[in-house]
Design a protein around this nucleic acid. Structure first.
Lengths: 243, 243
DNA sequence: GAGTGGTCTAGACCACCAA
DNA sequence: TGGTGGTCTAGACCACTCT
C-alpha cells in the first residue's frame, strides 16, 4: 500500500476522470475528506496539492476546490497554412502593447543565435499581447544593429524608440533591403517563473510554452522568444513533405 | 510581508539564480533552514516544495535537495532543415519499440482529425522511443482502414500485426499510392499524468510537450501524438517566408 | 550510524467568500 | 456568520543514502 495521501490523491483522480466530479464542480471539502479517510488535515492537503500540481484542480479560498476544465486545446485543423500560426480558442478583445524598447548588449544566448560577438549592441523590445484582461503572451525580441540602422535609414523608423507595435516588422526589413527568407522556431516547455505566472494569471500546475525564433536571409535578421500559457495556446505548423 | 514559506522560497530562489547554489549543488538541509529562519519543519518543506514544482530543485532522500541543471535546452541552429526535427542533446544508445498494435474504433478526437465517422476501424500503434534506460518519447499513431488495406496489398505489410518499427511508413504509403504531401503539427504543453512521469522517469516540476500530427495528401493519411518531457526535448521547425 | 528528506498528527489561528 | 482553504507549530516515526 502506498502512502495515505497518495491513496487519497489516486482516489480523487479516478473520480475526476470518471466524471463523478466534472469540470467546474467541487471535490469534497478538506474537513469531509479528513473524516472519510480518518486522517489529519495536512494529509488531505498533501493529496489535494498533488492534484493541483497535476493541473487537475484549483483550490479557491472560501469556495472549495474546483475541478479544472479539461483543457481540450481546440483542434482546429486547416492544414492550408504555409507558416507558423498562433491558434487561440476565444477571439476576445486583444491588444498588443510595447512595454519596453531600447539598446542593450547581447547576452550569450542572443549573441549565439544572431551570430554576433557577445555584448554587441542590439535593440531589445518587450511586448505583451493581451486577451481580455490578462496577458496572454510575452514577446521578447532582439534585432542586430545593422538591421536597425538600415530600417532607420530606409523607412525613417527608429525601432529603439518606437512604442507603437510594429504593424509589420518584416515589411520594414524588406524596405531596408533585408528580406527575410526563413524563420526557424524551436519549442520547449517549462514551469513558469512566479512573475510570469502572476502576469499571465496562470492557474497552478500549468506550464508555459516557449518558442525561440530566428529569422534569417543570408545573415540573422532577428531573434525573439514568445512565452505563453501551455493550456491557453497551441502552436501549429504545416510542413511540406518532399516527394 | 508575505508568508514565511514564500519568503524562504524567494530567498532560496534568488540564491539559486545568483549562483550561490549552482546546478548540482545542494541547498541547505531542512534542519539548517529551520534553525536559520526559526520555523517549523513543515514550513521549510512548503518552501522547498514550491521550488520543486517550479522545476528548480529535486529533493533526494538521504542525499539532500539538489539544484537542477538549468535546462539550457540546447540551441542547435542549423536552419537548413525543411521539415520538423526532433532535437536531442545527448546521442546515447536509443531504441524504438512497438508496444502495441491492432485495430481499434476511432475515438472522437481521432475521428475528427482523420475526417472519418466516429467508431470507424483504424489501426492503432503505440511506440516507446528510449534514450539510455528511460523512455524519452511516447508515440501513438492512428491509421485509417483505407490506407492500411492499400499498404497490405501493395507492400505485403500488415500494420496491425507488425511489431518491427516501420523504418519508413511514408515510403510504404507512397508504394501504396498514398503519397503524403503535408504534415500539420500542433504543439501544446501540460503536466504529465503520474504514469507518464514514471514511464519517462521525469523529475517533478517538468511538463510534457505534446505534438499532434496530421499527415495528408488530398485525404487524411495518418494522425499521431508524440508526448515527451518538455526539458529533454525541443521541437524545431523551419518555415519559408513568402516574398 | 549519522544525516538526509518523507509522512503524519492534533491543534490553532488567519484570509477569503457567499448568503 | 459559517464554511472554505492557507499557514504554522512541535513532535514523532519512517525510508533512504552514504561512509
Amino acid at each position: 500500500m502506498a502512502t495515505r495521501h497518495a491513496e487519497i490523491a489516486r482516489h480523487l483522480r479516478e473520480r475526476i476522470e470518471d466524471g463523478t466530479y466534472p469540470p467546474g464542480a467541487n471535490i469534497p471539502p478538506i474537513s469531509e475528506l479528513m473524516e472519510q479517510w480518518g486522517v489529519a488535515r495536512d494529509t488531505v492537503r498533501d493529496a489535494v496539492s498533488r492534484l493541483m500540481h497535476e493541473g487537475l484542480v484549483v483550490p479557491r479560498r472560501g469556495v472549495g476546490t474546483v475541478v479544472r476544465d479539461s483543457t481540450p486545446v481546440a483542434l482546429a485543423y486547416e492544414p492550408e497554412r504555409a507558416a507558423a500560426v498562433w491558434a487561440d480558442q476565444a477571439g476576445e478583445s486583444s491588444s498588443d502593447q510595447v512595454i519596453q524598447t531600447g539598446w542593450v548588449n547581447a547576452d550569450p544566448g542572443v549573441a549565439a543565435r544572431l551570430a554576433i560577438p557577445q555584448g554587441s549592441p542590439v535593440v531589445h523590445r518587450l511586448r505583451h499581447q493581451s486577451k481580455g484582461s490578462a496577458v496572454a503572451q510575452i514577446h521578447e525580441q532582439w534585432i542586430p544593429e545593422q538591421v536597425v540602422v538600415a530600417i532607420r535609414e530606409a523607412a525613417s523608423v527608429d525601432l529603439a524608440d518606437t512604442f507603437t507595435p510594429p504593424t509589420d516588422l518584416f515589411s520594414l526589413m524588406r524596405q531596408a533591403g533585408h528580406s527575410p527568407r526563413t524563420a526557424t522556431e524551436t519549442v520547449h516547455a517549462r514551469m513558469p517563473q512566479p512573475d510570469e505566472a502572476e502576469l499571465m494569471d496562470m492557474a497552478p500546475g500549468v506550464p508555459v510554452l516557449v518558442t525561440v525564433r530566428l529569422t534569417r536571409n543570408a545573415a540573422a535578421l532577428e531573434t525573439s522568444t514568445v512565452t505563453a500559457s501551455g493550456d491557453r495556446l497551441s502552436l501549429s505548423f504545416t510542413v511540406p513533405l518532399e516527394r
